[in-house]
Structures are given as C-alpha cells and as structure tokens.
C-alpha cells in the first residue's frame, strides 16, 4: 500500500496547473426568454456518484456556447425547419400527416422529450421518441419506418425537443422502466474494449478534465439531438454512444439496439432536473 499512498502524494504535487478545467459559470438563456437550468442538484438515484448534474453546454468554448443562445445562430434550427415541413406533409398509404392527428407540435409535444424513453404498455416495451414516431408511421400512417438515427428521424426528434426546451428532464425509472434502467446502469459502468474504459471512467470520474483536445463533460443527453460543428448536422443520442464505445477500441452496439435503448434511459435519468436543451450546439 505504500506505493499507492506515495502515488497519491505525487499526483497532488504534479497536478497540472495549466488548464482552467471544470464547468464554467455562464448562464444560458435562449432567444432572450427561455431560461435554462444547466446545473441542478443530482437526482436521488445518483447518490454517491455525482452531487451536481451539469449540461454539456458548460464545457464548450464561449463561441460555441454563444451559438445556442439564439435560434437564428443555432444551425440546428435549420433542420428543425425541415422537420416542420415534414410534420405538415402527408405520407404513407393513409394519406395522413403528423399534424392531422397531433395539431401543432408546440401544443401537444412539449412534454415528450422530458419524459422519453418511456414504457409503452400497449407495445409492451420501453420506447424512445424515435421508436414512438415509427409506431405512428407504420401503424397509423401506413408509411415506412425511419432508419434509426437517420436524418429524417433525428430532425423530427429535434423539432419535438425544441418545443420542450426549458422543461426539466423527468424520465421515470421505476415500475416497468426499472429493468431497462438497471440494464443501462450496468452498461454505464462496464469497462468496454481493449482500452477497458466505461462511460463512468470518462464522464463521471473525469468530467472537467481534458482528454487530449477534448474537454470532458458529464456526457449528458438533455441537449440532444446535438448540432455538431464537426459534421454540420444533427446527431442522435445513440450514434453518440456508438462513437464513444468505438473509441475504447471495442466492438460497439448499433443505434436502435435493445442495449442502446436501455442505455438511453439510464443516461437520460442522470440528467433528471436539467432543462431539455435540444437541438443544442456542440463541437
């Protein structure tokens, strides 16, 4: 044990001073009116893991943060506009549009992103927003399902998120959702791949630290879909998971897989209390 104690001291002495580190103290208000909760006391189920939950927005550079404060600067809103057209356009053998049944998104979809993934007792499964939309397309519209995390699906998911901005994330993790929560939690702490790294190794133990050029956040998903400057489009939650697991030199999972649906619920629940922020802007 001597060796390990020495290490701790050495680590303290050697602690790098060059980086600012941590989350910043900026405040996010969108369009001068929607006040966002980007830091919140951690929900009870994170006892012992985190004291505070923090939106990924706090870990981005000022210029990137700025882009999210105004819908005219947020390039993600261009894709939301495309989704509005889609919302109003009939598709499939029934000749129906989303609007025919749901009216205006802002009237009927404001609580969706905050509460999904959600257990659907008719379907007998936990559903993400994309799964629910595909249920409407295949069972109610006579249309083909959208491929998981395809452009059309992510854009519509962003439209639905955008009308819920400011609402606190509040997914249920008890009852029928509990087994999915447990499966997702198990995955979150599994050290995948040849690098043997879990989500927690990076996003719980090291948020605020730099890993090469990347400023590690808590890996929250309250801001999804995210518009990334890197690829200039909206990115789905599960595609992000796929990339993070791939980067541990692991065999990753596919968007839409049972594993990622469970992981989405778990990660979303780690952000209970943070405002829905999608489409957010990230690098």
């Amino acid at each position: 044990m001597k060796f390990k104690a020495m290490t701790a001291i050495a680590a303290l002495l050697l602690a790098p001073a060059a980086f600012a580190g941590g989350a910043d103290d900026d405040v996010l208000v969108i369009n001068g009116e929607i006040e966002m909760t980007t830091k919140a006391d951690a929900p009870a189920h994170l006892d012992g893991a985190l004291d505070q939950v923090i939106s990924g927005w706090h870990f981005r550079a000022d210029e990137t943060q700025q882009l999210e404060t105004d819908d005219f600067e947020n390039q993600g809103m261009i894709f939301v506009d495309q989704a509005i057209d889609q919302w109003n356009t009939a598709a499939g053998s029934e000749g129906k549009s989303c609007a025919d049944c749901h009216g205006a998104p802002e009237d009927n979809m404001a609580m969706v992103t905050a509460t999904y993934p959600k257990y659907d007792s008719d379907a007998g499964e936990l559903q993400t927003v994309q799964m629910q939309m595909n249920e409407c397309r295949t069972e109610r519209m006579g249309a083909d399902p959208w491929k998981y995390d395809s452009g059309a699906a992510v854009n519509m998911e962003a439209l639905i998120a955008s009308v819920g901005r400011g609402t606190p994330v509040q997914v249920a993790i008890d009852g029928d959702a509990a087994p999915y929560y447990e499966q997702g939690k198990e995955m979150y702490y599994t050290r995948y791949g040849q690098l043997e790294l879990s989500c927690a190794n990076c996003h719980e133990e090291n948020f605020g630290n730099y890993i090469r050029a990347d400023h590690l956040s808590q890996g929250q998903i309250n801001g999804f879909p995210t518009y990334r400057l890197k690829n200039a489009k909206l990115n789905g939650v599960q595609s992000r998971f796929k990339g993070c697991i791939r980067d541990t030199r692991a065999e990753t999972f596919s968007p839409g897989s049972d594993e990622f649906v469970a992981l989405e619920l778990y990660v979303k629940s780690r952000g209970n209390g943070l405002s829905v922020e999608g489409p957010s802007v990230r690098n």
Binding site: T7, G193, Q194, I245, R246, A250, E251
Partner: peptide, 25 residues
C-alpha cells in the same frame, strides 16, 4: 500498481469485454 485505475493496460492480450478491431467499432 493502481487498483481499478482508468489507465489502460498496454501489454496484455485477454480479459477484455467486447474487444474491437482497433478503432473500427
């Protein structure tokens, strides 16, 4: 040297969960 450390093992060949082919996924 350090129980449960985040640092990867560089000279080891087994015991991995879902080992991948490099960074291909």
């Amino acid at each position: 040297s350090f129980d449960g450390t985040v640092m990867p093992a560089f000279y080891k060949t087994n015991g991995y969960i879902r080992p991948g082919n490099g960074y291909t996924g």
